[in-house]
């Protein structure tokens, strides 16, 4: 790193290499609560097969995973649990908001439902649909991989100090 704080030539090159490996070995934590969890299973299974994108190693422990897939509804009882899981994950960590309920509350604008998980934790990518088709999820994962390569995810930006969430 140069004295004025800008990244030098070597660090940027190393970052690019690290991000390249990082994006192709994403270990997801499936936080499936409702309907979307079933479609997430379909995405992980043989017909759609997320392992083609290096994201098949499903880990249920937040310490071992770096992509939090929030699939399904998060209500007022579940929200603190989800925040706990997110806080336990090691940096860099990415969050995919899977489906309409997680992204915005969807058709459930009611007393118990959190209106979007981005009110609770920073989200990198939103996959629309109720539930999203597996093709949509794979598309979302590929967009996330591009973001990781460019270092644009919330966690990587926080690491660089450009944001402070």
């Amino acid at each position: 790193m140069a004295k004025d704080g800008s990244t030098g030539y070597l660090t940027t090159r190393v970052d690019a290499v690290v991000n390249y490996f990082r994006k192709n070995s994403v270990w997801p934590l499936p936080f499936g609560t409702s309907c979307c969890g079933i479609e997430m299973m379909a995405t992980l299974c043989s017909d759609y097969d997320m392992s083609r994108f290096g994201a098949e190693v499903v880990r249920f422990s937040p310490r071992q995973s770096d992509l939090l897939i929030v699939a399904g509804i998060v209500n007022s009882k579940m929200a603190p649990v989800m925040r706990n899981v997110y806080d336990q994950m090691a940096d860099p960590k990415f969050v995919m908001s899977f489906g309409a309920c997680a992204s915005s509350g969807g058709i459930f604008n009611v007393y118990s439902v959190a209106q979007g998980i981005d009110t609770i934790l920073p989200v990198d990518i939103y996959v629309p649909g109720c539930p999203p088709a597996p093709e949509g999820v794979i598309n979302g994962l590929m967009r996330l991989q591009e973001m990781i390569q460019r270092g644009e995810t919330q966690s990587q930006r926080r690491e660089r100090g450009t944001i402070t969430i």
Binding site: K77, P80, Y111, S112, A114
Partner: peptide
């Protein structure tokens, strides 16, 4: 009690910690 008729449909309540 949410299903009472006088409870609003959007009467959210948020808690910082899990049960």
């Amino acid at each position: 009690h949410p299903l009472r008729k006088d409870y609003p449909l959007r009467g959210y309540q948020i808690f910082p910690t899990p049960q």
